[in-house]
Design a protein around this nucleic acid. Structure first.
Lengths: 77, 77
DNA sequence: CTATAATTACTGTTTAAGCAGTAATTATAT
DNA sequence: ATATAATTACTGCTTAAACAGTAATTATAG
């Protein structure tokens, strides 16, 4: 059980997958079509990054986002 | 199978859960600690909303976000 | 070791997101 | 039906995020 924030989890996730993919921050930025500063910001757990930017970066790394409803059987609705 | 964007899915998700919770846009905004305009924007699939704002709103509705790695067994690392 | 290349970290400027205020719409009551 | 309340939709202003450029750091080579 961890007390790290979602942003810290996201930061680690992106950093790890970027490294595994053998990409530099700049390469990932270009691949995702965003500025390189944002990659740095994301990997440093900056909370105030725009959703579409995050989505682009995650898409470039082939990471999927999923929402989980508190209501039974609502996730796919 | 759906061709709706992630933003449209998110929009529906938030709208549905807000309605089920019996909250107005304003009430949800206050509960989440964000401006009411953002609730409107989110429910209209605006992509350029800040991540922390989305996270606050989802948290207020008790919706969980999960990341899925393309690499086996990497999700919890 | 020093030099060079590559990558990451930082900064100032421009642009657009978030907010409060207001208008429009919808619901509820009488 | 009209009036009132409640909710949603829209707008302009202020502030901060995204970007390009630059500095600092780290890696690689000779």
């Amino acid at each position: 059980m961890s007390d790290e924030t979602f942003y810290q989890q996201l930061a680690r996730f992106i950093l790890n997958h970027r490294k595994i993919s053998g990409l530099s921050q700049l390469q990932l930025a270009e691949l995702a079509g965003v500025g390189k500063t944002v990659i740095y910001d994301l990997e440093h757990a900056k909370p105030s990054v725009q959703l579409d930017t995050v989505v682009k970066v995650l898409h470039a790394l082939n990471i999927k986002i999923q929402l989980h409803s508190p209501i039974e059987g609502f996730d796919d609705v």
